[in-house]
Deep mutational scan, measured.
Amino acid sequence: DIIVVALYDYEAIHHEDLSFQKGDQMVVLEESGEWWKARSLATRKEGYIPSNYVARVDS
């Protein structure tokens, strides 16, 4: 799995977006363009995230 960590807070604009806080970790489910589908490890919610707001966690 690709794990990313939030670099900034993000408040969902559309209902399919995923809100998150700086430091939150998410599993990337699908990478396509600038918006990635991800699942929050904390809340288990899924939605689209702006890929420029996150960084990959080296395992």
Rank of each mutant, 00 (worst) to 15 (best):
K22L: 07
S40N: 13
Q21T: 11
L41V: 10
I13G: 08
A6H: 01
H15C: 12
D9G: 06
P50T: 02
K22V: 09
E46I: 13
I3T: 06
Q25M: 15
Y10C: 04
E16D: 15
V4R: 01
L41Y: 07
A42S: 12
W35R: 14
G23K: 02
L29F: 08
N52W: 15
D1A: 14
G23R: 02
D9T: 09
A42T: 13
N52I: 09
I49F: 05
A38C: 11
A6Q: 00
M26V: 02
S40D: 09
S40H: 15
D1E: 14
V28T: 02
E30V: 10
I13A: 10
V57G: 05
D24F: 02
D58S: 12
A55C: 12
Y8G: 04
Y10H: 06
G23A: 03
W36V: 08
V57K: 08
V28C: 05
V27L: 14
S40Q: 10
W36G: 01
A6F: 02
E30L: 09
D17N: 11
Y10P: 00
T43S: 11
I13F: 09
I2V: 13
Y53I: 06
E31K: 14
G47Q: 00
V57T: 08
D9M: 04
A55S: 10
D1L: 15
K22G: 03
I49T: 01
A55P: 01
A12M: 04
L29V: 08
Q21N: 12
Y48Q: 07
D17H: 15
R39D: 02
W35E: 03
L7I: 09
D58C: 12
V5W: 05
V27P: 00
S40W: 02
A55V: 14
Y53K: 08
M26N: 00
L29Y: 07
E46Q: 09
V27E: 08
A6L: 01
Q21M: 11
R44H: 15
G33Q: 05
A38I: 06
A6T: 02
V54D: 00
V54Y: 02
K22I: 09
Y48N: 10
L41M: 10
V4A: 05
D17G: 15
F20L: 03
W35F: 11
V4H: 05
L41D: 04
S19M: 04
Q25K: 15
A42Y: 08
E30R: 07
D1C: 15
E46V: 14
K45L: 12
R56C: 09
S59T: 13
D9Q: 04
F20A: 01
A12N: 04
Y53T: 03
N52R: 12
V57I: 14
P50Y: 07
E11A: 12
I49K: 00
E30F: 10
H14Y: 10
H15P: 15
E16V: 08
Y48F: 11
Y10G: 01
L18C: 02
E16L: 11
E31L: 14
V5L: 06
H15K: 14
R44Y: 13
G47I: 01
H14M: 08
F20T: 00
V57E: 06
Y10R: 06
K45T: 07
A38K: 01
V4K: 00
S32T: 12
G47L: 01
D1M: 15
E34I: 13
H14A: 09
S19T: 08
A12F: 03
Y10S: 02
E30C: 14
G33P: 04
F20D: 01
Q25H: 15
L41R: 05
S40G: 04
I49A: 01
I2R: 11
I2F: 15
D17T: 08
D58R: 07
G33H: 05
K45N: 09
S32R: 14
G47K: 01
S40Y: 04
Y53C: 09
G47R: 00
D1F: 15
L7M: 09
H14F: 09
G33D: 06
I3Y: 09
Y48T: 05
I49C: 02
A6M: 04
Y53M: 12
T43N: 10
S19F: 03
D24N: 04
K22R: 10
R44L: 15
D17W: 14
S32V: 12
A38F: 01
G47C: 02
W35L: 08
D24W: 04
V28R: 01
R39Y: 14
R44N: 15
V4L: 05
V27Y: 09
E16Q: 12
D1K: 12
I3G: 02
A6Y: 01
G23F: 05
K37Q: 07
T43F: 03
L18F: 06
E34M: 14
V57N: 07
D9C: 07
S19A: 09
E31S: 15
R39C: 10
E30I: 11
Y10M: 03
I3S: 03
M26C: 02
V5R: 06
E11V: 14
L18N: 01
W35I: 09
A55H: 09
Y48W: 15
R39L: 11
V28P: 01
R56E: 06
D58A: 11
R56G: 05
G33E: 05
F20E: 00
V27S: 05
G23D: 05
K22C: 09
S51N: 07
W35H: 08
V54T: 04
K37M: 13
E34F: 15
Q21H: 13
N52S: 15
D24A: 05
S19D: 06
Y8C: 13
I13N: 10
L29T: 06
G47T: 00
S59N: 13
I49E: 00
A38H: 01
R44S: 14
L18W: 02
S32I: 13
P50C: 10
S59F: 12
G33C: 08
L7H: 03
Y53H: 09
D24H: 06
A55I: 14
D17Q: 15
W36Q: 03
L29Q: 04
E46K: 04
I2E: 06
Q21K: 15
V27T: 07
K37I: 10
S59C: 12
P50L: 07
W36R: 03
W36K: 06
Y10V: 02
E16C: 15
Q25V: 15
V5A: 04
V4W: 14
G33R: 05
S32P: 05
Y48I: 07
E11H: 12
A6G: 07
S32E: 12
S32F: 13
A38G: 04
Q25F: 15
E46A: 07
D24R: 01
D58T: 12
